[in-house]
Design a protein around this nucleic acid. Sequence first.
DNA 1: GCAAAAGTGTTTTTCCTACACCCATGC
DNA 2: GCATGGGTGTAGGAAAAACACTTTTGC
Lengths: 225, 225
Amino acid sequence: MLLAVDCIIFGFDGTDLKLLLIKRGFEPEKGRWSLMGGFVQPKETLEQSAARILKELTGLEDVYMEQLHAFSEVERDPIERTVSVTYTSLIDINKYKKQLNNDFHSEWFPLKKLPSLIFDHRDMVEMAKEKLRYKAAFHPIVFELLPEKFTLPQLQSLYEGIYGALMDKRNFSRKVLSTGLLIKQKDKERLSSKRGAFYYKLDKRKYQTKFNSFLNFIPNPNNLN
Amino acid sequence: MLLAVDCIIFGFDGTDLKLLLIKRGFEPEKGRWSLMGGFVQPKETLEQSAARILKELTGLEDVYMEQLHAFSEVERDPIERTVSVTYTSLIDINKYKKQLNNDFHSEWFPLKKLPSLIFDHRDMVEMAKEKLRYKAAFHPIVFELLPEKFTLPQLQSLYEGIYGALMDKRNFSRKVLSTGLLIKQKDKERLSSKRGAFYYKLDKRKYQTKFNSFLNFIPNPNNLN
DNA sequence: GCAAAAGTGTTTTTCCTACACCCATGC
DNA sequence: GCATGGGTGTAGGAAAAACACTTTTGC
């Protein structure tokens, strides 16, 4: 029985929530889109394995990562019995633009427009989305997806992307600012609007402290998709 | 590399939240307390494996069960490299009293008085407790631990056991009744008090429907342990 | 000058919390 | 008749939701 790891990598580019996929370079299913995966080596933990695979295939290092679920349907890999443990990563797309796209055929897909995936990778992605929604509702986890400096409208569209819901910007800004986790900057982002939107930074010390405190970012149920 | 499953079985006896352990019958670590575990067979999923192990070691069937986490430290089993996927079960102790204790050396331990466990089983239990707290805060999951008919005081002491906190019974009953998930019975439980406490049953149809809706059973932070 | 997105405040409602007394019964 | 645990109601405060107008600036 083989033991594999697959990585579900969410990214945010300031507007859309996306997923990183690679074009599979070998049989079976050569040429189709797939999550980043590989086999666990005898002397590494699953976490180390996931980090290694991510590094090898994308050049990414030191990114947020957590275990999602072990998938074990007997026939999930038609060739050989393989159990796959999945890991979810969150990254800021722009930060890692250079490393990507070069060596491997990897590509970002908007969550709403995913291609067909091999094996049970679609189930994996669905579960990861579900968990991201669940977790983001109570933990300030989404900052992993943002660049160091970001604007409130960007943060809001990230939440809206995660929940597939529209939120009221007045209530939204009150809610996020009330956490005390954001530090307003003096400069503005001027690309996406004429007036420009102030940048904010995450207060990293408070982020550490408050990570496990329950925050409530659940959008109101009327607008849930 | 070996692939194993370990089951963390929580039970409630009407008063205390407990954990089911067995005395390990073989080396290494023979004679010490352990979670229920076993190896995954070539033609079974992890879920089937967990259910089989549970059945074999305890006689329990059709119990609530969900995957917790895969543990993979290289040296976690000192003899052979083994990755273990853990599953959490919730059961009503009294319902299954007969099956237990006979064939295997299994025993219920109050969560607050656990013996020393083999390997990394203690970490597994800690993570399971954490997740139970997390999940029970938003899902009506704890009913899996209760008999068909139960009283509000029993339900409350279950929540108090999970969170290690005391709750106000007036606020508690308002909160749980407001979910509309409970159906009041005409008869009373008369063992634990003179006056007797009304039984309630779970409205199973609503339970199915509402399982994924977010409920808020988080105790107030002042009393968290 | 106007279109487009940013930013801001108030009112209403809902939910949570704190809190204290009466009830039914076995002894 | 009293000790024990069961059951209920209310008032105050905090948080969430609904809601609309003004600001800035590139074109």
